[in-house]
């Protein structure tokens, strides 16, 4: 039992390290996703007429909407890594547990999304004049929300892997399912940024529940999807 868990954790680390190393070399996250996310912040500024009170009110929602866009891009990239030159066959033939492959890919996407959040939060402080009242709440919310987005994204990414229309189908599948993350992370950030009187920590609990449910779904459903690819 413990040995199995240790092996599982090792395989998850192996896959996550592989994906992160590939991302680091290709610089997709740093070179494209992060600038894209910052650009979205600037564009929202124009769209809302650079109105300070409006921006301040809308900051948490805009921030997480932007992370949602970044999720779609990051998941598409994560799927493409496996489909280029039949590379995904390596994991399939290795006999690694599908749950480990899912866990590793989820972890790698979560780390990238966290990096996006780490750039975006100072971005809203500088551009929208947001003020962080509870750094701890902001950090914990970011971790829980990005983990949930990565889990649901990686699973649904595997659903559309190898399909010609995957770039258009993924957002249709992913965005409705992650609606709770948008709601919960936005509310929690309203507390962390002090823009509304809500209890952010109870929303963190909902994020944790979402993440747990989708990690469990992925661990079960990733195997059949890998078989079909």
């Amino acid at each position: 039992m413990w040995r199995d868990l240790r092996l599982l954790a090792g395989d998850i680390g192996l896959v996550a390290a592989k994906d992160l190393r590939i991302e680091w070399r290709a610089r997709t996250t740093l070179g494209q996703v992060v600038p894209f996310a910052l650009l979205v912040l600037v564009m929202f500024g124009f769209a809302l007429n650079a109105n300070r009170p409006t921006l301040e009110l809308a900051t948490p929602g805009l921030l997480w909407m932007t992370v949602l866009f970044a999720t779609v891009v990051a998941v598409q990239r994560s799927v493409a890594v496996e489909s280029t030159d039949g590379a995904g066959r390596m994991l399939l033939l290795s006999g690694m547990a599908p749950a480990a492959a899912f866990g590793g890919k989820t972890l790698a996407v979560a780390v990238q999304l966290l990096a996006v959040a780490v750039v975006l939060v100072p971005g809203v402080v500088l551009l929208y004049g947001a003020e962080i009242e509870s750094l701890l709440l902001a950090v914990v919310t970011s971790i829980a929300a990005t983990a949930g987005l990565a889990a649901a994204g990686s699973l649904l990414g595997a659903v559309v892997a190898g399909v010609r229309a995957h770039q258009t189908v993924l957002p249709i599948l992913l965005l409705p399912v992650v609606a709770p993350v948008l709601i919960a992370a936005t509310r929690a950030f309203e507390d962390a940024l002090g823009t509304a009187a809500v209890n952010g920590w109870s929303w963190v609990g909902l994020l944790a529940g979402f993440t747990a449910a989708n990690v469990a779904l992925g661990a079960v459903a990733y195997g059949p999807l890998m078989e079909e690819a």
Partner: peptide
Amino acid sequence: HDTALYGEL
């Protein structure tokens, strides 16, 4: 036919 290698590695 394809090599099943990760190109960036």
